[in-house]
Design a binder for these strands. Structure first.
Lengths: 194, 194
DNA sequence: AATAAATGTTAAACTAGTTTAACTTCCTTT
DNA sequence: AAAGGAAGTTAAACTAGTTTAACATTTATT
């Protein structure tokens, strides 16, 4: 059952007694999105924070030319939302679309707020998750500046080997901030170098 | 007095009663760093989260060539630390150096943890601050991909007009991920365009 | 099995940003 | 007031990554 995946995941960070688990269960819902469906659309308010129990998503920004820029991918045990939109309940800058059929456990803003109050351990947990995400985000900024596209591709493969196998190459190029043609060139150079 | 600056700042987010203010005061220390002094050095453990009451700092990464890459600046009412190092109490990736004489209020890891427990409002406050920082960091990643160096410079000026006036140009170039020579060229083009 | 659609490749011409190096201007320190 | 260092500028040669366009391969649909 889906909810159990969340409990298992949380148990590696915090321990919740039966009562707390029941409270949590009463505040979340479960949903399945089909491949290509949108979890969040640019311009809509992001209603949920989503915990992925299975599947794969991409979070992307559409620029004025209609080009998509992938901000992040999401797989099992990742938290996915347009955080800026969710916390302020204002229109989203990003789209979240499913690359595979994706099952999630959803927290509304109101339910999450009430969980924070009822189970302070959970607020602490989310603070720590967000701290880590911020550290990772800052590291990514520095990486982008200090490394060539080829190095960044190799680092990506090492950091997220599971994602590299599941998403098309042109999306990885977008995540790295380069064109699919250039990534193709990089890959052929890497094969040659071996 | 320095501590009052922190209280004033916090009051725009949360209200602390006298007792809570006293607890807070008992858990922080004050320190003045001179121009060019280091608040954090790459390799050391980042011992404090610093709230700047006056002055200006740069947080930067030194790559293998010895080139510095500025991750962020800090001015009055900003929180400065190597967050990754602070939360795990492991060696820092970044340096924090003062661009001006800088006064800060410092929180050790232990004191901050105990404040979170004694004043849950403060944990909520920090969660929100970090959420915002994460949103800003993700936006910066997308900005870097979607805009030219010239656009990013204009955006920087608009976003942080106070910082632009206080720090040398070559540091702004580093923050933008371009060379000082190219920023110089961009500026001369902008003058010409007017 | 056939066709269309999505994904991936190659190569040539191009451009945004880097490198190097020489020079200028401004700021400190004596 | 002079001298030295830090910060900023200019320009030429270069390179990492883009653009365009044509083609190849894989995957999905009938």
């Amino acid at each position: 059952m889906q909810f159990q995946s969340l409990i298992n995941y949380l148990s590696t960070f915090i321990s919740l007694d039966e009562n707390e688990q029941d409270i949590l269960a009463s505040k979340v819902t479960h949903r399945t999105y089909l491949k290509n469906q949108y979890m969040v659309q640019q311009g809509d308010v992001c209603k949920y924070v989503n915990f992925i129990t299975s599947g794969c998503t991409k979070t992307f920004y559409l620029d004025n030319d209609g080009t998509e820029h992938i901000v992040m991918f999401g797989i099992e045990n990742w938290w996915i939302a347009d955080l800026g939109s969710f916390i302020t309940q204002s229109p989203a800058d990003y789209n979240v679309q499913c690359i595979e059929t994706t099952e999630v456990i959803q927290f509304t803003h109101q339910n999450l707020e009430s969980l924070y109050t009822q189970i302070p351990k959970l607020e602490r947990f989310f603070r720590k998750i967000i701290e880590r995400a911020l550290v990772a985000s800052q590291k990514r900024i520095v990486r982008n500046f200090t490394h060539s596209a080829k190095d960044n591709y190799l680092i990506f493969k090492e950091l997220y080997p599971k994602i590299e196998q599941r998403v098309p190459q042109y999306m990885i190029a977008s995540y790295l901030g380069i064109t699919k043609e250039f990534l193709s060139k990089i890959k052929s150079e890497l094969i040659f170098e071996k």
